[in-house]
Design a protein around this nucleic acid. Structure first.
Lengths: 239, 239
DNA sequence: AAGTGGTCTAGACCACGGC
DNA sequence: CCGTGGTCTAGACCACTTC
């Protein structure tokens, strides 16, 4: 029977158990993670379920599998292709995350952005602009857009402390699932340069992302400008 | 019995069949791809195998699954997070791909690059530097490094025409499986600017990739500098 | 109510790695 | 040789969407 104790699928629980052992330092890079058959026995699941757990960890680059040899803990603690909030990204590097809100209001007339969110052109949108700081230095400018009809209360909620991801989950029961990103390089204009404390014309990494909920609905449009010396993107591609 | 006819796993054959129908225009974006149970019947495989095929297509963004509703062809023909050679990338946009080889020789003393390829610091490396052109304009400078002990004959092979991926596969039986990339922005120096026909200081997208074979061995180190107006990266992230 | 994706079972054979 | 990952089977129940 599908043992969905406390709502968490078995393969998720197995993943979590392994990740915990890695983070606790019990498993070091290069160490053998239990084989599929071992994991299946220990967690009392079938082989396919244990496999599924390992497959996801492999995709994220937490674990490496060598046919005939075994499954091993991968080198660093980098989550490839992982959708994470700024807060989470900083936490994974053990850095304090801070934000300064520059703008937080309801606007209208952003046709292109509305379209990217699958909304009518004249929709009201909540716009939140923040400077992201890591280790007390400005790292990025992030501008978010959401449907004001669905998430208008965001304009009143203080975005100073809490993560936007957490807000969406707690206040609206919306869980984010994946993001499609468009990445290029651009030169800092006067305003960006001032906010980030860098010379005008400096190269910046520009990331535009549309973030989807677990229901497949586009929820969030984010434009990010990142200081290239302070931020590099890590990606894994497959053949 | 695992039906590995002609060496291709069943789930790969199913994928290929679906992709073919999409590319042929028989399936348009939004159309229903057969359900898991349909696919299983048609291809005479079990449910889990049909599922596996769809899972990979979902990961690549070719197909969208809505629980309770069905599986649908996704919007564009973008392969997210897909490792593709420059030749393949251009082909997928129906553009002619051309390259000019600037440099193709065996070198020594690139310690850091050797390390990234898992080789001793003083290893001999083949270095190939190329200007990539799409639609008769220079788009990128790509510098590849490979182990000279394993692939020394590359220095003699003309890299003008053929794809490096194809060369590795045909001449050495090495199939590339995935790449880990590190992405940031940088300013064009004098040489890059001249080669790409842009002003000095212009922002460039810099991509460093280590490409691994199906055996998990690092085979190729590539440094790419891309004109940001001519190239944007598309990525999908997961939660 | 019928169909769908999401999860899961309890087995199986194969090719390959390391001893 | 034995253990490993890679592939596969023939079923099953659940929550959900669509009608």
């Amino acid at each position: 029977m599908p043992d969905v104790q406390n709502g968490t699928p078995a393969y998720r629980r197995i993943q979590a158990a392994i990740l915990q052992r890695i983070e606790a330092g019990q498993l070091r890079p290069g160490d053998v993670v239990g084989s599929e058959r071992q994991l299946a026995k220990v967690h009392k699941v079938s082989l396919m379920t244990a496999r599924h757990a390992l497959a996801v960890l492999t995709r994220d680059g937490m674990v490496e599998r060598r046919p005939g040899a075994g499954t091993f803990v991968a080198q660093p603690k980098i989550h490839f292709n992982r959708l994470a909030s700024f807060t989470e990204q900083m936490a994974s590097r053990s850095l304090p995350a801070r934000s300064k809100v520059l703008y937080c209001r309801i606007i209208r007339g952003e046709h292109e952005i509305a379209a990217r969110l699958g909304l009518p052109a004249e929709s009201r949108l909540v716009k939140v602009e923040r400077v992201r700081q890591g280790a007390d230095e400005p790292v990025a400018i992030e501008t978010c857009h959401l449907s004001a009809d669905d998430f208008g209360d965001l304009a009143e909620a203080g975005m100073e402390r809490s993560s936007l991801f957490a807000f969406l989950e707690r206040q609206h029961g919306v869980t984010l699932a994946n993001a499609d990103e468009q990445i290029d390089a651009t030169a800092a204009d006067a305003r960006s340069a001032r906010l980030l404390g860098i010379p005008v014309g400096e190269p910046l990494l520009r990331i535009r992302q549309v973030i989807y909920s677990t229901q497949g609905k586009p929820v969030l449009y984010v434009l990010g400008l990142y200081r290239s010396e302070r931020h590099t993107l890590l990606i894994r591609r497959y053949r």
